[in-house]
Amino acid sequence: MSSQALLEFQALTFERDDWPLFSDLSGAIKVGEILQITGPNGCGKTTLLHILATIQPINVGTLRWKGSDISQCHQSYLADVAFIGHKPGLKLSLTPRENLQWLSKLQPLNRCTSAEALARIGLAGFEDVPCYTLSAGQLRRAALAVLCMTQARLWLLDEPLTALDVQGIADLETLLLAHVEQGGAVALSSHQALTNPAVRTLALDAMAEAEL
């Protein structure tokens, strides 16, 4: 595999309440790799993922998608990125199927049907029950079902392992591996170590300590 960079970030600096979360952070997410962002609570993992997903605007620094500045290719970038936040993003009064169908109208999710996706993620039989009857782990699985359906090359996942059981984590790792083997890329934040060989780690706390 080539080590071509999909998303590069250069000299990112972010401060909240005049307190720097991280400064001069540079790096890249490359084709075929899983970038795991680690660090203690409050070190800016979620903020970094939000900046990469262009939810949070950049104060200082640049973001480049396939070599061109993100502001030049924002629409095509959005069509090629799947973001799952630490909140599942599901409407509790709707069923998992309805939630996924709604999402597929907003984002290109047509690699498989919502029923197939839910079956692959271990929610067969729960397609048509309201989400408020599901457990936290099942909700997380329903949110991750998007990953089975999406055509996006870059996945940005904020704490995807939260509330998942051993089987759920194994299922997710299989999904991630299959994705990067097909030329995709993943950036995720997590406290747990992944056993995956494709994982590269970006430790935010180390940066902060180097600053001090």
Binding site: A53, I55, G85, P88, K91, L106
Partner: peptide, 19 residues
């Protein structure tokens, strides 16, 4: 916003003002 689905709306490639 509270359940996180607002982010999906905003990250849609479709124009946000229309949504």
């Amino acid at each position: 916003f509270a359940d996180g689905s607002l982010v999906h709306l905003m990250l849609s490639p479709q124009p946000l003002w229309l949504l």
